[in-house]
Design a protein around this nucleic acid. Structure first.
Lengths: 341, 341
DNA sequence: TAAAGTTTTGTTTGCGAATGCAAGAATGCT
DNA sequence: AGCATTCTTGCATTCGCAAACAAAACTTTA
């Protein structure tokens, strides 16, 4: 209340107890929600605590209670607007749930290993992984009994907690939408071949193309990053039969494709070529792009991830679960009628 | 080494000590760099530790050593590509310095207050603030003896540790560049008026315009966000004397201006209007924008911030310091010759 | 009003590692 | 060899709080 310019050394629960004339355990109870304590006692303690500017030491509390109330987030530090969106969504929600975020930005395999050690050392209550994680690393965390939720990651035949975006019907809509515009020659810009997300997206795309008719006239592999799209676009367009629509495995690359087409190759989008992506990142909706895409419900996915990890922390024996949230088809202006031959 | 599918309960230094036939303090010393310990002892301990998969408990270590090796980062969760860039740069560097990042994404005043409490409770060793922080809140942290480094924030007349980008000469270059292109009628899109960054940038812009000649024909205020640029652009362009160049207080808004001009108002950039921004965010370099801008050396600034906070943690009595890193003028294609009248 | 039940409070121990101190081992020096 | 010096090691204590248990205070009920 009053401003205190002087330097306080940190007050402990004993200091508060002494000032309030009660025992240390009373102070502890006063700060533990749901503990049995009388109003009179609480008032006394609170008054003393305020006087001393006391706040419980979370470190000590973590040590004794074996619960740090910290959750680790592993996230790729790759320059891809998708990740920051996920991260901020997760972080906002964790703080609303009374959990602190221990952030690990991942640049490579060795960063993950390091992060896993730190998670263990800091007794993180749980882990959300939105970055590459090997099966071994996942198992290591399991052995250490740390709940893990994979965000848009997956292992076949392994019991993992996963939040996944189901894009099947949206992909169907997307291809149908392109078909309606008269597209039948597609160019595919895949993500890295090891990426399950890319594999799945491309599988659904092929399946939908089979269903609706049309053919894939050229293919290329990118690394999900904006920069990788330039060369890939050239490759896709140099094919003898040119695609009239390019399907990129994520928005970031789709933006790169669009930029390469429009600003480097002098093509017009969608008049000459249509472009679609995946993710529904914010930047894809900018007027310069207005991508047609399959949007992940990132907010809801983050929500679900937080719920799931909180459950697993509270009840570690809960069996694993995969939650599929449905992606939605978003029509932008990057798609239009196929150019007449 | 060998794969151990069974569930280990966590080993403590006592377990290791018992297995190695030494005292607990020997184990502790073995894991403390620079402690006095013989090779024979170290080998014994390391062997036992590996056998038990032991890693020191950072929580316990923090409690006794009064050093958590965690640094808090306060960062606005506003949708502005600048922040994620800063955050990832900081995070990557902290992990290289053996510090963990406790992330606080900030949505409003009350989030900051909450974060400050958590920082105190978790005994964070230091704080990097790249979000709004009131003087009172800053002082509270000072009273609690927690080193703070402000990232692109500032208080007049207060001893604070600050990393700041000095854009004076770059702004000069920018205006001179516009002048060379024949621009003399400028539209200013300010950031929020309380923002020191915006104040400073606009001050330098006005000063440079005074120096090089030219006039500000219209002004508007935005909130640094992409969306706020649309209406502001309309406002700027509806003036009786239309600006031939628009100067936005950050790239995010400059991108919005560009999009509004090109994609909504049907203008051409830079043929009809030139646009410039500030920050030098990655997205501003995309082919659809290629903004002319004043780039902050974000990497070096992050580096400096980390260095500074590490110094302050190691030697808390070090006097405060402001470090000004020089921004650079970056010429894109969003600027060109002023349209003949 | 006294016994039984309920709630509140205090006492004590322990979470897991770091560290000052003192004892013990190893080394240097004459 | 004998003594001083340096290096290692173990013992005991400490960090700040939580929680099991015991003791005390307060309610209820017959």
């Amino acid at each position: 209340m009053s401003s205190k310019p002087e330097i306080n050394s940190r007050a402990t629960s004993y200091d508060v107890a002494r000032l309030a004339g009660v025992s240390q355990s009373a102070v502890s109870r006063c700060f533990k929600p749901g503990a049995s304590i009388s109003k009179k006692m609480r008032d006394k303690v609170v008054a003393a605590a305020e006087e001393l500017n006391y706040q419980p030491n979370a470190i000590a509390r973590s040590l004794i209670s074996q619960r740090s109330h910290m959750v680790a987030i592993l996230i790729s530090s790759q320059i891809n607007f998708y990740y920051p969106e996920v991260l901020f969504q997760l972080s906002d929600r964790f703080s609303k749930n009374g959990l602190r975020v221990l952030l690990f930005t991942i640049n490579g395999e060795e960063d993950v290993a390091d992060a896993i050690d730190q998670i263990w050392q800091y007794q993180a209550d749980g882990v959300i992984s939105a970055s590459a994680l090997s099966i071994e690393q996942h198992q290591l965390l399991q052995r250490r009994q740390i709940p893990v939720v994979m965000f848009n990651r997956y292992f076949y035949n392994l019991p993992t907690n996963t939040i996944w975006c189901d894009t099947e019907s949206a992909v169907n809509e997307m291809i149908s939408h392109l078909k309606d515009f008269g597209h039948s020659k597609f160019g595919l810009l895949r993500g890295p071949d090891y990426s399950m997300v890319s594999q799945e997206r491309m599988r659904l795309v092929r399946q939908a193309i089979d269903t609706h008719g049309g053919q894939i006239v050229s293919e290329s592999e990118g690394n999900y990053r904006y920069e990788s799209a330039a060369a890939a676009t050239q490759e896709l367009m140099q094919h003898r039969v040119k695609p009239t629509a390019i399907i990129a495995a994520n928005d970031m690359m789709a933006m790169g494709v669009l930029d390469e087409l429009k600003n480097v190759m002098g093509k017009s989008v969608p008049a000459d070529v249509s472009v679609v992506g995946f993710d529904g990142i914010w930047a894809a909706s900018f007027a310069s792009y207005e991508l047609t895409t399959v949007r992940q419900p990132i907010g809801r996915m983050a929500e679900a991830a937080v719920e799931m990890i909180v459950d697993r922390i509270e009840k570690p024996t809960t069996s694993t679960e995969k939650r599929y949230l449905t992606g939605t088809f978003v029509q932008g202006t990057s798609t239009g009628p196929a150019k007449a031959k």
